[in-house]
Design a protein around this nucleic acid. Structure first.
Length: 267
DNA sequence: CAGGTCGCCTGCGGGC
DNA sequence: TGCCCGCAGGCGACCT
């Protein structure tokens, strides 16, 4: 699933392959419901002949702005989305749902088997309470007291994009496993040392994944498929815990499949 | 308001 | 082997 490292990988790939400065021609879509805020025709009219000036990540959104300061759009990869910058005559990949045609025979292809991804005109994502987890100053210990005393689970908190930007289900489980914190632990039972430990494990997990993607882009080029991360957590119920060999637990938190080791991760 | 649940959507894996 | 059912989940809408 595209979470923060996968979205960042995609962004770095787009920048390395010269997206900045390319000029938009038109958009084609097989799935207009996933284009938000403008019809595909309006999108094409609005952005025709306009150059892309920046591409930045906010949480799991890629925000693309143009030389007209007010017109920009965001791309969200959903669960199965990926982007590919290709020559117009390059062989078409499976599940291509949208194509942003660029000038000089280039195109940005949005592949997305399950159609959860979106292209959003003038999206204004909520400003999260926390810095981006890749920011060196990111620390969960800086959470406002109002959040620290909530009764919700720690997993739902770190997956809440309005609190911590960019973490999704898989990296949440992995971070909690690494920090030896039970995903069901209520936030108000988290001590300072727990917040610091979880902060460190989030940074480690995300940066490890990102360096895998950086290496991969250097050696084999960008690959739209994800999951290069070497996970420690075993995502299989009753399978042996990687660390203590006790059986792994499965549960749902906010209807997300959650794996944890009840032995290594005390509540 | 906090917090939980649902529905969007479709490929794929497990089970028979 | 082939078919079919249900699971997977980010996010916003909605409910309690």
């Amino acid at each position: 699933m595209p979470e923060l490292p996968e979205v960042e990988n995609t962004l770095r790939y787009l920048r390395e392959n010269g997206l900045i400065g390319m000029t938009i021609d038109s958009i084609w879509t097989e799935s207009p419901n996933n284009i938000i805020g403008l019809s595909p025709e309006q999108f094409s009219n609005t952005f025709y002949g306009i150059a892309i000036t920046t591409a930045e990540r906010k949480a799991k959104y890629i925000n693309i702005s143009t030389e007209t300061s007010c017109d920009y759009f965001s791309i969200h990869l959903g669960m199965t989305g990926s982007l590919s910058l290709d020559d117009t005559d390059a062989e078409m990949q499976k599940y291509c749902r949208h194509v942003i045609h660029l000038q000089e025979r280039k195109e940005l292809r949005f592949l997305d088997s399950r159609k959860f991804g979106k292209i959003i005109y003038q999206n204004k994502p909520k400003i999260p309470l926390m810095l981006d987890p890749l920011d060196p100053n990111f620390s969960l210990d800086d959470l406002p007291a109002k959040v620290k005393t909530r009764r919700a689970t720690i997993k739902s908190m770190i997956m809440d994009q309005s609190i911590v930007p960019g973490i999704g289900n898989l990296y949440a489980d992995e971070s909690l496993f690494k920090a030896e914190i039970n995903p069901f632990r209520p936030i108000y039972l988290m001590e300072i040392k727990d917040f610091l430990k979880l902060t460190e494990s989030i940074k480690t997990v995300l940066n490890n994944a990102l360096s895998q993607y950086d290496k991969s882009r250097e050696s084999d080029g960008y690959k739209p498929e994800f999951n290069l991360s070497p996970w420690d957590i075993v995502r299989k119920e009753n399978a042996e815990c990687f660390r203590c060999l006790e059986p792994m637990f499965f549960a749902r938190i906010n209807s997300r499949g959650t794996y944890y080791c009840n032995n290594c991760q005390p509540t």
